[in-house]
Structure formats: C-alpha cells, structure tokens
Amino acid sequence: MLKVSGLTTGYGKIQILQGVDLNVSEGQIVALLGGNGTGKTTLLKALSGLLPVWDGAIEFDGQPIQNLPPHTIVRAGLTQVTQGKDAYPAMTVEENLMLGAYTRNNKPAIANDLERVYTFFPRLLERRTQLSATLSGGEVQMLVIGRGLMASPKLLMLDEPSSALAPKVVMDIFSTINRIRKFGLSILMVEQNVRMALLLADYGYIIRDGVILLEGEARDLISDPNVKASFLGGTVVDTTRDIKA
C-alpha cells in the first residue's frame, strides 16, 4: 500500500533522512520507532507533502506521490495525524472534526463517520460544542485522531499518539487504535513508547540518525536483545491482553 524507497530529505541544507526504505501493507499496523531527533517526524512530513523530497520514491496505492502538494496527498487517502497540540484551539471539537472531512462531500457518509468517531471517543461527544483549547492533553489527542479518521483515509499516519500523556490515557488511546484497525485501515505509527507500540503493531522499524537500523515482525523485535538493551530497559512485561482486549 505504501512503499518508500531510498528517501532522503531535510530542512534547508541539513539532511535528516539518509535513504529510508519502508513498507506498509494493507490492514497492517507498522511502528516506526526511535528517540528524539532521529527523523521520525521528518519522514511523516515528507510522506504527507509538508517537506520536499530530495531523492527517492514514495508510492501510495500504486501511484507515485512524492512532492505532490499536501492537500492532493490527503485526497489520495493518506492522512497524517499530528500531535495533539495541533488541534485548532479556537474551534469547537465538532468544527475540528468536520475540518478533517474537508475533502469529502458525501454528507450521510460524513455524518456516519462522525458518529463512529464519537463512539470511539465518547469524551468528544460530551465536549462537542466546547473549544478545543479547553480540552485535556488526552482529549486533544483523541480529537486529532478522530479528525484524521474523518478524512476516511486508507492509511493513517500517527505522530506519537502517546507523547506527554498519563499511562492510563496512553492505554486508552492504544486500545482505540487497535479497535480502529478492525475497520480495515492501515496505520503507520511513529512512537517513542517502544514497548507499547510493538505490542500493538504487526511490523516495526527502528530508525536512528536518519537510517533504518533494524526492522522485523513486532513480536521478534520485542524479544530482540539489541532492542531490549537500547529501548526496553529491563524485563518485558506482557501487557498484550490489556491492550488487545
């Protein structure tokens, strides 16, 4: 579904990605893992068209999409969910969600999706007429994910859905992501919370200094001694049941 090969890009003259290869198949959750400043968000920005691609190719749904304007890429079905701070604070929850459906015109289908987002995140329904500036950190994270779903994408890219959230909220959000996948959506998830992400994902990539260091099935990565040593630190507790319940 998404095929990235030899992607290089950066900001101004500074190169960040040094040739990244990455694949997401239909219905898969793929986790892209790494610490701060390793190029995770940069990769998402290049995929969604916010950053120019210097070299390499991005193929989505069989079509090359590198260097298309962002709004065209959204229309193709590839939606990036940025971090919670990027909800529009001066708009209500529902206005934010409706912005997500900006590219669509089928009103009944939009209403249907809105209802679905509210069933995923009942908190948003309670707060639908509130300005999103008044929401908590966990709620805005739910809001931006909901907004991404409103675009009815084929592939959803999540940028650190767990960042700066309490463990309980992170658990909620990850279990919702797991529910979302059942609707046949593919997900590319950027995360620093390596353990949680690998428990949820099917496949994982570990990125460092703009290159893919390691890749593999999520369950293999989680028991990989290198990953354990550098990211997981200590024993892996099996919390799979909590998330996938």
Binding site: S48, P69, H71, V74, P89, A90, M91, Y102
Partner: peptide, 16 residues
C-alpha cells in the same frame, strides 16, 4: 479560519 490559524495543519486537512 483553519488557514488563518495554521497553514501546515490546514493543508493536512486537505485544504488547498
């Protein structure tokens, strides 16, 4: 309003 508040995010919403 979206463009006025944040152009990058607006373009990610599919706004030209």
């Amino acid at each position: 309003r979206a463009v006025a508040a944040n152009k990058d995010i607006a373009s990610l919403m599919g706004i030209n």
